[in-house]
Computed example of a mutant assay.
Amino acid sequence: MQYRHEVKVLTKLEEAKANLEAPELGTESVRTAKMKIVEGLKLRQNVEYVVESSGVGENNVLRSLGGKMALYLMDFKSENTSKKYFAGFNRWKSFINEHGFSDLPAEPVHVALYLTFLIDKHSSPSVLQSAIYSIKWAHELNGYIDPTSNSFKTLLLESCKNWNGKLVVKKDPVDNIMLRELCSIYQDSSDLLVIRDLTMILIAYAVLSKYTPRDDFRALGFDTGFHIDQVHEVRHGRSI
């Protein structure tokens, strides 16, 4: 019986995914997809259970609001965000169900094992972050305790940044030595485009720094008549 129920839920999730990935995502397709997600996440079932447990009987007018409440809960995130989180939750569900455990509600240690699995697959920190948000989203919708709010998640995410994060290589700042070397490379060039580009580079550098490129202009083989006072004028926003 439990197996048939899990197959039914998975079928609803797959149907919702198909509706969300339709080429022309109209209002009706979005509504249909939301209905499938509500059923796939057992959201309506859980909302009705909570309403009934609060003492609201079948004949009470409040009982009819349970179904609408489930749909409105789906709208607390934008359509694109819900689509992204739903896909992430679907991946988590397939993983944990394959090993015979519950996806909703989930045990924190099982989520931590899933994150470990992703790190082991060389997934990037952004993939882990997406998985965490997706699982958190599904649990918040159903009123369950968030299984990602523990130290395991935080530490594994930091570990992923160390293992699978991109190494940031900072570039050396441009200085006048680099500019002199650049000018020396093209000092014999007669190409006006090259001279123009070098001139623009030197002027821009002079305006943004305290360096005056007069000597480097002369290294190019021409005299611009570019004086120190003119550099100061441009640096202070005045025309020359």
Rank of each mutant, 00 (worst) to 15 (best):
L167T: 15
G88E: 05
T11H: 13
S184Y: 07
K36G: 13
M200Q: 10
R238A: 14
D175K: 11
N97T: 05
L25V: 03
D103N: 02
N80Q: 13
G165W: 12
D216N: 00
L20Y: 08
R238F: 14
S159F: 12
S94Y: 08
K34V: 02
S209D: 08
L155E: 14
L193S: 11
D172W: 09
N19Q: 00
G55M: 09
G57E: 14
K84Y: 08
V9K: 10
I201Q: 09
E39D: 10
A106I: 01
F217P: 00
G40P: 01
P105T: 02
L220M: 06
V38T: 03
N80A: 11
V111N: 07
L43Q: 01
N60W: 08
W92D: 06
I201P: 06
F86R: 03
Q45G: 05
K93C: 08
R218N: 14
K17H: 08
L167M: 14
Y211L: 07
L65N: 04
K210N: 10
L13I: 01
Y49M: 15
L156W: 15
F95L: 04
G57K: 14
K136Q: 14
S82Q: 03
L156Q: 15
D191R: 09
I37V: 05
E15I: 03
P213G: 01
A219M: 15
V231T: 12
V30F: 06
V169H: 09
H227K: 10
M69E: 05
L113D: 09
R180P: 01
K166W: 11
L43F: 01
F95S: 02
F217D: 02
L208Q: 10
D216Y: 04
V56A: 00
F86Q: 02
L41K: 05
Q230P: 07
Q2H: 14
R44M: 04
F117N: 09
R4G: 05
L25S: 02
K68C: 00
K77P: 04
Y3D: 08
A16K: 02
R238M: 15
K34E: 00
H236G: 09
G165N: 13
S151R: 15
T154P: 04
V30M: 01
M69S: 04
A18L: 00
V169Y: 09
Y205R: 05
A16D: 01
L62P: 08
Y49H: 14
D188N: 13
K68V: 06
S124H: 12
S130Q: 15
V234Y: 14
V207A: 10
H5T: 10
V51F: 08
C183W: 03
N90L: 12
V51H: 04
N60H: 12
L193P: 05
S159I: 13
E6G: 03
Q129N: 15
S134D: 08
A106D: 02
I228G: 07
Q45K: 11
T154Q: 10
A18D: 01
P213N: 03
W163P: 04
D215E: 00
S151K: 15
L10P: 06
S124A: 10
Y114C: 03
